[in-house]
Amino acid sequence: MRKAIEIVKAHYDANDRHDIDDMLADIAPDCRWTEMDGFPCAGTYVGPQEIFRNVFQALGKSFDGYTFKLERLLDAGDEIVAVGDYSGTHRETGKTFNARVVHVWSVAGGKIRRFEQFTDTLRVAESMR
């Protein structure tokens, strides 16, 4: 069985390839995915389809070139912490943003069970007005 860090790294590798199917492949049906309050798609979504619709698809509709650039992964066994940067251009305003971000992942039984985002929501909000 793959280690938690390998599963999370595979998610980011799929993100870099823009491969949604591979991004969702290791997400458990009961995974709780939380986007930070104040973020455009804030909330907690359960399961791959809710996550796709309310996070990945929603961000793609609102932003051109929305990206996450991974700087480093920290291995804490079944808990993984990712540090990096978001960037993008809001489609309606044409304004760009860059925001520092941390993701906290929980993996069990070879599946992603929980994800929580921590980011500078003000930077993103400023691009939207």
Rank of each mutant, 00 (worst) to 15 (best):
T121E: 06
G43A: 07
V104A: 12
E79I: 12
I80H: 00
T96L: 08
G84S: 13
A82D: 04
R100S: 14
Y86W: 09
A25R: 09
R129M: 09
I5Q: 00
D78I: 06
T67H: 06
K69P: 00
A14K: 10
R17Q: 15
D120G: 11
H103I: 11
Q117N: 09
A82F: 00
V107L: 05
K9Y: 01
V46M: 13
F115R: 01
G38D: 08
D64E: 13
T93M: 08
K9A: 10
T44G: 11
E35Q: 08
V55P: 00
A108V: 08
R123D: 05
D21W: 03
V101Y: 05
V46E: 15
L70E: 10
M128T: 11
G65L: 00
P29E: 15
V81D: 05
K111Q: 14
G38Y: 03
R123M: 07
I27F: 01
S127P: 09
T67D: 11
Y66A: 09
V46S: 13
Y66Q: 08
D75R: 03
A125L: 14
M36H: 05
L70M: 13
V124R: 00
L122M: 10
K9L: 08
R2M: 10
V102T: 14
A125T: 12
K61H: 03
V8P: 05
Y12L: 13
M36D: 04
E50A: 15
R114A: 15
M128C: 12
D30K: 11
H90L: 11
F97T: 08
G88A: 08
S87E: 14
Y66S: 09
A10Y: 04
R100F: 11
D16C: 12
P40R: 10
A10P: 03
K9H: 07
E79Y: 05
D75W: 02
S127L: 05
A82R: 03
D22M: 11
R17P: 02
A76C: 09
I7T: 09
H11T: 09
N98W: 06
F118L: 14
D64V: 08
F39P: 00
E92G: 12
R32M: 14
Q117L: 01
S106H: 13
A108M: 03
D37T: 14
K3E: 02
I7G: 04
K3W: 03
D64W: 01
S106M: 10
E116R: 15
R113Y: 01
R123K: 09
W105C: 07
M36K: 05
I27H: 04
E116H: 10
E116G: 12
D37G: 10
V107N: 06
A25F: 06
T121S: 06
I51A: 05
S106G: 11
D85V: 00
R17C: 08
E92P: 07
R72M: 04
E92T: 15
D120S: 10
R100M: 11
G84D: 06
